[in-house]
Design a protein around this nucleic acid. Sequence first.
DNA 1: ACGAATCGTTTAAACGTTTAAATAAAGATG
DNA 2: CATCTTTATTTAAACGTTTAAACGATTCGT
Lengths: 345, 345
Amino acid sequence: MKKRTSLKDIATRVGVSTALVSYVLNNQKEDRISKEVAARIKAVAKELNYRTNQIAKGLKTSKTFTIGLIVADISNSFSASLARIIEDEADKNGYTVLFGSSDENDIKLRKLAHEMINRGVDGLILAPTENAIELLLELKETEVPFVLLDRYFPQFRSSYVALDNFQAGYMATEHAIESGGKRIGMINFRSTHFHLEERTRGWLSALREHKIPGGKKQLRLVREHHLESEVQKTVNSLLSQQEPVDTLLLASNMIAIHALRYIIEKRLKVPKDIAIIVIDETEAFEFFYAPLTFIRQPLQEMGQTATRILLDNISHNKAVSQVNLSPELVVKKSSLHHYSSPLKR
Amino acid sequence: MKKRTSLKDIATRVGVSTALVSYVLNNQKEDRISKEVAARIKAVAKELNYRTNQIAKGLKTSKTFTIGLIVADISNSFSASLARIIEDEADKNGYTVLFGSSDENDIKLRKLAHEMINRGVDGLILAPTENAIELLLELKETEVPFVLLDRYFPQFRSSYVALDNFQAGYMATEHAIESGGKRIGMINFRSTHFHLEERTRGWLSALREHKIPGGKKQLRLVREHHLESEVQKTVNSLLSQQEPVDTLLLASNMIAIHALRYIIEKRLKVPKDIAIIVIDETEAFEFFYAPLTFIRQPLQEMGQTATRILLDNISHNKAVSQVNLSPELVVKKSSLHHYSSPLKR
DNA sequence: ACGAATCGTTTAAACGTTTAAATAAAGATG
DNA sequence: CATCTTTATTTAAACGTTTAAACGATTCGT
């Protein structure tokens, strides 16, 4: 890489000190600097195509105008959409973003966070893994500004922006009931993640309030790393038990993808054989023959709010902001028991 | 943010110079340094939880172990998947990645590239926009290592990793013909992007070689910013002309998404009324009632190769590497004229 | 006309590293 | 024992900025 032009280059060319060049280029002390010299400096800067070395500036000012974003997996559409929104919001404020995927792995999350901090990010937006508290304590201790995204720990006080997951579970289940569901099963991850447990609690609570029998008997938990096989197994078990379930509440888009594949393979009819509701969204849902009813997360608001809170935190305001966003129920066809699908066989 | 511990802190604590601490922590001059002092320094470093300030190190060494990645839109699954692969490959080599979305906008691309360079990235992986050549010339001139991703300019010599798009177009078309297609239309972007034009050229070439009539008459071009309406219009025009097309070759996943929506809306039967083949891939395709036949890009290889070439370029090898990857045809149902879809109406 | 205020600019230190060169102390050589 | 090596460590400059403080030269007020 070629040497870039520095303040010094400009200074020697114009015949002034680097300090003066710095002042001019940062529009500081404008009233104190002679118009002619300022103009000359700016001209030479443009001529030599000067661009600030943010590394040097960052070293001096301990500000890099870079934020770190750690998601579970950038290749997942949920993360990718958020990343895009955060990128735009950061950009509006002159920030650039470093990203990383934790793969729901505590060690990796920690490593990524450290790498980013070592690179001088001004703050972090992160979707914490299950056992991230230790890391979060460290961040708090070292006063690194951060905002949790999508998840948080109720017992740990920090800024976060997340969905109201209880409401999401509740809403989905209530809709299932109103659409004629009598036995509503749920498939969720085997996880201690609060946001996932909340979805289950919402489901359970709606069942109870509407006096729907079954309860936890109709809950199935699957492991992230055996998703395909466990989703198949659990769908199967919910459908083939003594009193089969007529509605399936799926706790995430990844679970839904696998369930859908299995349903297609087994030629089950949605919603006649089984109604489906998903918490989460992905492009694929609308192309299924019985377009899926799902709970939409307000991604735009989630990403923007998280970014704003972080930037706010970075620049002054040390307040803790906790934001729970409302889910939106998007009713399509997969949940309507009375809907007869175009699939005939 | 709290002050982090520096070499100086360790040095004063141990009672040695910062130079020595630096040597020890970087495992340099190991044979020249007394075991005891080295051990002491390492102990204190751990105790004070020392972590290198990469900003300072970067300033001194002009190496940040950060690369910049500029895609068209990180929220698009194609970009997101590549980003993930690149992230992993970079991470394996101790690099972190800054990302940005160009939105196919030359100005934005330029701005992003500059921001990244100002932040001292060691190199750039970028999907260039249509008129990126000026920027690329600048990168070449200033000797910033870079690799083009997904696209390149045949008249501009630089490293790149891309699909063999001609072959993709050719392959898709040949398959259409072999599956009984008689009149094969294509919808592509209105763009001067070489990689898109190549897809058209491949299609055209296959038509000619198989003596299929129609040729450019059956080509429709749509604008990115009016995708929905123009895709509808063009699908319609290809199907309602004097001699309607029986197969549609769609040049990208975004075009396909819109076409599919329209097809569903209009209740067209795939593949009976119209067969579909897409160049590009997205999760949604498999859930359409007639799962889509498509051309798969070897994303893994694409991302990994690009990253490796870049890192190679950064560390020594100034050679230009140009890699054209082979597309893979994935045959499902949408292209098979003899296949009778489960959709009955 | 003299000290004070103002003006335009420079000096110099600092941010946290790296690294070539210098140095002091100890050991080997003849 | 004088000299040369080796060993272990330090010195000091540098990377490219920022910024408080200092500076000399004008201009001002009385």
